[in-house]
Design a protein around this nucleic acid. Structure first.
Ligand SMILES: [Mn+2]
Ligand SMILES: [Mn+2]
Ligand SMILES: [Mn+2]
Ligand SMILES: [Mn+2]
Lengths: 220, 220
DNA sequence: TCCAATATTTAGACTAATCTAAATATATAT
DNA sequence: ATATATATTTAGATTAGTCTAAATATTGGA
């Protein structure tokens, strides 16, 4: 099979393709993986030899069909284990990433399917990210940013863009988490801040900085 | 921390010390790990430099206090995950070893303690092997071999010596598993076979080959 | 006690993953 | 269009883990 390192590269390339378009640059991968461009070039050549990526020197890299399948399998495992850690072991959503980063590499197709069943086939992880199914299909998700919300409407929080620990802890403190209902009472055009209520609670001010990192869907 | 490889060596040395006495030979480790003696010598030197083992060239190796602690921590994780896989995910006891072999290397003290709690602080894994506690202490276990049982007495099965898949599957088929009560009706001195009943069921013949791989304690 | 069989270590080589520094290709800005 | 800046690759080195073959130490039998 693939080494941990190869798997981590596949996942990184998948995420960069998702954000920055189909051709991923050597430097982008190096930055994302906290390594050097020369190291990335070496690994790309290996992944290319294994037909996991398409690669033209100087022109960037993209996942092949098999590479994409492998990446989705790793992401599936990562998100299922995160769900397990939060729902079964009681960890907070800001604590689980590093553990899942290790658990995603456990090799056993049977284990993944049993875990999925044990967890009740969840569609989203604790951060609201979609969990690919056994075939690598992602659940449908139409999500918008909270900063594009309209005054007077209500929405359901569906996830976050930023996954950093400090951001997640802050959301915890103010009571925002995936699934909660957000009523948008005011929008201040000057600084793009919002005044909201969560599940009909007390009014709360949300800065642009935060609003642009929160995903919402139409409530219902 | 320690690499997967180092952890696997520590565990191997622990198990060999348990079975063969305090000084473990290079060849014994090589055989147990399915590798070469020269490879073992290299690794022993590294473990020795890290003060995880005591080593005198040509004289064998033994775990230091810290090495033993590390080995017990890995064994704790291995057996807790095996318990999880059987009790929560519904795997059979002959299916879980290879998965636990990977899961035992996940680094997160908090995860281990939460898992232990979630599982109800089990004292033994699905094979009847004792689970070290958070401090590395093993639960008390006075276990004897079924082949040393006495006619007319009853015992509780507490575990197995042999852990191979085929043996475990066979035990499953005849209904023997840790926790069951074994009534010894007959002992044939010629071939050292036994006639037993499990939980008061039908009479069953057990060969010496099997009897010497089953652990028992006094029933109650 | 001594020698041959066995066990262990050393020497030298290989692969995977990483790095720094140098070379080369691509992009951008007059 | 040319030169400068940036991005990428190549060259050469390092570390962990492994191997084979050769050297050396230990052990047990005559
Ligand atoms: Mn990872
Ligand atoms: Mn997540
Ligand atoms: Mn292992
Ligand atoms: Mn076990």
């Amino acid at each position: 099979m693939h080494s941990f390192t190869e798997e981590n590269y596949l996942k990184a390339i998948y995420k960069l393709m998702e954000n920055d378009g189909p051709e991923v640059s050597t430097n982008a991968i190096a930055a994302h993986m906290n390594t050097r461009a020369a190291t990335v070039t070496d690994m790309i050549k290996k992944l290319s030899a294994k037909k996991l990526v398409h690669y033209t020197p100087y022109q960037g890299v993209s996942l092949s069909t098999t590479g994409k399948k492998a990446a989705l399998s790793i992401i599936r495992k990562h998100r299922l284990w995160e769900f397990f850690l939060v729902e079964k072991l009681g960890f907070r959503w800001d604590e689980v990433h590093d553990m899942a980063e290790q658990m995603e590499h456990i090799q056993s197709p049977e284990l993944v399917e049993r875990l999925d069943e044990y967890l009740g086939f969840p569609k989203h992880d604790p951060h609201g990210d979609p969990i690919p199914d056994a075939k690598g299909r992602l659940p449908e998700t139409e999500a918008a940013l909270l900063l594009s919300a309209q005054k007077g409407k209500k929405y359901k929080m569906s996830g976050v863009i930023d996954h950093h620990v400090l951001f997640l802890k802050h959301l915890d403190e103010i009571g925002l988490k995936p699934g909660c209902i957000i009523y948008v009472d005011q929008i201040t055009s000057y600084d793009l801040s919002l005044q909201i209520r969560i599940n009909g609670g007390k009014p709360l001010f949300i800065s642009h900085q935060i609003a642009r990192n929160i995903l919402i869907t139409s409530s219902r």
